[in-house]
């Protein structure tokens, strides 16, 4: 039986834009539910990996990446998804490296990353809410810099 359904569904226009947005909501629900269930809404659990008292971050993160990786590989082998149409993050070496270093400093200082701060905030963690305020300030500072004519994101390609 060949139903001729090939992902990505939205890119191949097999589903409408509205359906795509509705599914985006449910994908969000799925990821939010999983992240909260395993403890990503707690900064002390997240940061625990850097002090050796809690390794949940590494376990979840790498298991997740490997699962998605293998899934995409098999989907591609079965002809269920066209990997050429899947977005692959381009490499901007220096901005990725320096950005990662700044994010790492933010992680150990603030105890969250953007996704996990949404998790914390949604169950009432005030520290997560304040972290999100910080995110807005940080993104705005960067964008103000861009407006002043400096495009930091393209030092290398």
């Amino acid at each position: 039986m060949n139903l001729n359904i090939m992902g990505p569904l939205a890119v191949n226009e097999l589903i409408s834009m509205d359906t795509n947005l509705l599914l985006a909501f449910f994908i969000g629900v799925g990821s939010g539910f999983v992240l909260e269930s395993c403890g990503f809404s707690s900064s002390r659990k997240l940061v625990g990996v850097f002090y050796g008292y809690d390794t949940v971050v590494l376990k979840v993160f790498f298991t997740g990446a490997i699962t998605a990786m293998l899934g995409l590989l098999f989907f591609s082998l079965f002809g269920w998804i066209d990997l050429n149409l899947v977005y692959v993050n381009e490499l901007f070496l220096w901005s990725t490296l320096i950005g990662g270093v700044v994010m790492g400093a933010g992680f150990i200082t603030g105890g969250f990353c953007p996704g996990t701060s949404f998790c914390g905030a949604a169950i009432g963690k005030k520290d997560a809410m304040v972290f999100i305020i910080g995110l807005f300030i940080g993104v705005a500072i960067f964008m103000a810099g861009i407006l002043c004519g400096r495009d930091y994101t393209r030092p290398h390609s």
Binding site: S95, A105, I108, C113, P114, V130, T153
Partner: peptide
């Protein structure tokens, strides 16, 4: 410290073109 961390992470995520979710997790997956 949460506020300072948020500012750093926000700035860094724009510089690095994505945060732990979009750049690291989803990036590694592809």
């Amino acid at each position: 410290f949460a506020l300072m961390g948020g500012i750093l992470f926000g700035f860094g995520s724009q510089l690095g073109r994505g945060c732990t979710s979009g750049s690291a997790l989803s990036g590694m997956a592809v």
